[in-house]
Nucleic acid binder design. Structure first.
Lengths: 209, 209
DNA sequence: TTCCCTACCTAACACCTGTTAGCTTGACAG
DNA sequence: CTGTCAAGCTAACAGGTGTTAGGTAGGGAA
């Protein structure tokens, strides 16, 4: 425990905000206010530093935004992959889909400012920023397409639905919740169950009793 | 037909852009580029006038945006109401819902720059502007809630789904298509059929054969 | 002709934006 | 004590923003 030099162990050295601190603050602001109304000075203020200092960590505003967009997708991608692969082999299609839907929705509504910021601002951001985020985005989309294709080939999904279109509908619908979700009216967990109910079985009462 | 004075009939007097011309151009730009990247100078340029001249027709930029948002909802509201009330009495729930869904989606994707602009920029606009648009929006939401409630009371919809939540899910899902819809990959008409299929009956293959 | 009114233009304003260059601070290593 | 280096500060820049005051062209009415 005791050694010659003091060093190494830092109690509260000066607590610099740092690159990650800036990113965290920026992600929260982008989620709350959208892209257009968040300036570098707002980010700096909220982080407790001055606007110019941001350029010590980032080369441009776009660089911040791209970083946030990428992390946002990586978070939800990783969580979704883990949730699905944690299920025992031979799990039925309904359970798998419920897990995937629930994970995506919780990442969006409960867990990550980065993921919600991504969904919120992707459509507001310059084309070059969108392009930079595309590869990451494509990877997540491919994960969903693979999952859905597997289930369809297994005969669990209706055979006539186009996978790409189904994925766009599904993720689009889930992402849209960000505009109106209110935790006081029910948890993300409960909402995800409702979504799964509707998407899996529809809303029509069936008369095959 | 013929009268003393020439007057009244104008062939092509000077063709002023006018208030409506500005609105039309602005709605298109907002739909294409979002709220943040459309300045008054861009609107003026596209309309063929100078920025200052816009203030002859509008008191502020917000006034333009509010006007566009309101018209956007009114258009789709009117069309949806007409489409549903044009159906003969006693039409089955599935047909009614397909009509409503199809009308909303076509207004969004085919018909109106105002409606698509509304969906695109509502989340990017200052709070005061959103508030100004709320009454119009509420009226359209009420129309949907009334429709869905009627069908649910009739026993056509599953009884355990909350109407408000169902409406948010449905319209949210439809509006999300604006982010990815590509007319080269299929018409809005066809897309609306797919949406109705999924929402009405779900995506799971049923084994009650 | 004279007047009016609509629809526009010109030129400027105060403010905010992203970005840059150069300086300061504080912790640690030798 | 000295030097180094990460982290942040100050002050300014060029350009874009919404907005305003005052001027102007041109058609219709009297």
């Amino acid at each position: 425990m005791a050694d010659g030099t003091v060093s190494k162990v830092k109690d509260a050295p000066r607590n610099p905000v740092g690159r990650e601190g800036v990113l965290d603050v920026a992600a929260r602001l982008f989620r709350e206010q959208g892209y257009g109304s968040v300036s570098l000075r707002k980010i700096a203020d909220a982080a407790g530093i001055k606007a110019g200092s941001i350029y010590y960590h980032f080369g441009s505003k776009d660089e911040i935004v791209v970083a946030i967009l990428d992390v946002g997708i990586q978070v939800v991608h990783e969580k979704m992959r883990q949730a699905v692969s944690a299920l025992p082999e031979g799990t039925d299609a309904e359970t798998i889909l419920r897990a995937a839907i629930g994970t995506h929705l919780r990442a969006l509504l409960d867990v990550s400012d980065y993921t919600s910021a991504n969904v919120r601002i992707f459509g507001q951001v310059p084309q070059s920023v969108r392009d930079a985020n595309l590869p990451t985005r494509r990877a997540y989309e491919a994960e969903w397409d693979a999952l859905l294709s597997r289930l369809q080939e297994r005969g669990a999904l209706k055979p006539d639905v186009d996978i790409r279109r189904l994925r766009l509908m599904l993720i689009g619908a889930l992402n849209a919740t960000l505009d109106w979700f209110d935790p006081d009216r029910g948890s993300a967990e409960a909402l995800s169950r409702t979504y799964a109910d509707v998407f899996l079985n529809g809303i029509l009462e069936r008369q095959d009793s």
